[in-house]
């Protein structure tokens, strides 16, 4: 099988999501409304704390609020149940029979989805943020480059996590509870609600022991310049390590799950 299948799958993922224009516009509106509320709450906290919380000034807090809402859809913090549905209906057998690696194929598709969502879901909140509170962005191109690398890693870690969690459908009849539990953990531990650096020590330690901060907090920190230089490189290295671990865990789950899979007919 030629490796050119994967870019084609990524392009297909891009095109599939570009079909839902009204939903994309509506999603961008929701991101912007949430961003406005979050910017008010986070900057209000920084002002109440005397101008700085854990390295975040007013400008950084506002930028974090808008940027995290802009990246929410591309990195897909919330779980979807696409693969779980395919496991339940048995369609996953078709995925396993294809001459491409199921995990790499789904990863390529998800990168295509993220690439489409980046501009239409990301620009509106950032634009409103730039016009209302102002944004702080990296002063030099190196910051943007590292930010983009960190963003691709964030999307990938998120994909690997969602893919692995969906595979629990091999063992569970109803995965809705598991997926909601995942979304609950992700909402807090990715830093979507409040930046991870603001957490009390016990919660910060809990977050650091999970791959969740690598999904959203890491790219946001690199883009806002809360971490720079060697510290930023370290953040990207941690993301890479988590990506390897979670991808491997997903492959183990798939291997164990497909041994249980029995498909009728032909």
């Amino acid at each position: 099988m030629p490796v050119t299948a994967y870019p084609a799958l990524a392009a297909a993922g891009f095109r599939r999501y570009s079909a839902y224009r009204a939903a994309t516009a509506a999603g961008a509106l929701a991101n912007t409304v949430f961003g406005a509320v979050k910017a008010a709450v986070l900057t209000g906290t920084v002002v109440a704390a005397g101008g700085s919380v854990a390295g975040y000034g007013v400008a950084q807090a506002a930028t974090f609020a808008w940027l995290s809402q802009a990246l929410l859809a591309p990195v897909s913090v919330f779980a979807d149940d696409r693969l779980a549905r395919r496991v339940r209906t048995g369609d996953v057998a078709v995925d396993l029979a294809r001459p491409v690696d199921p995990q790499l194929a789904a990863w390529a598709d998800d990168l295509g989805r993220a690439a489409f969502q980046l501009l239409p879901r990301g620009l509106p909140p950032l634009l409103v943020g730039a016009l209302t509170t102002g944004l702080v962005l990296p002063p030099e191109p190196a910051g943007y480059l590292l930010g983009c690398a960190s963003l691709v890693l964030g999307v990938s870690v998120s994909f690997a996590l969602r893919w692995a969690v969906n595979l629990t459908a091999f063992w569970l009849i109803d995965v809705r509870g598991v997926l909601l539990l995942y979304t609950v953990c992700a909402t807090v531990l990715t830093g979507l609600a409040v930046p991870v650096a603001w957490f009390p020590p016990w919660l910060a330690a809990l977050a650091a022991a999970t791959p969740f901060p690598s999904v959203l907090q890491a790219p946001a920190d690199v883009f806002t310049g809360v971490v720079t230089g060697a510290a930023a490189l370290r953040v990207v290295a941690v993301q890479t390590a988590w990506l390897v671990v979670v991808l491997a865990a997903g492959r183990l789950l798939l291997a164990a799950g497909s041994r249980r899979l029995v498909v009728q007919g032909g």
Partner: peptide, 18 residues
């Protein structure tokens, strides 16, 4: 869990300010 995760914002923010 959803309720508790919503409460997390209040908890973290008031851990930082009075």
């Amino acid at each position: 869990g959803v309720g508790i995760s919503e409460l997390a914002t209040v908890y973290v923010v008031f851990w930082r300010v009075d």
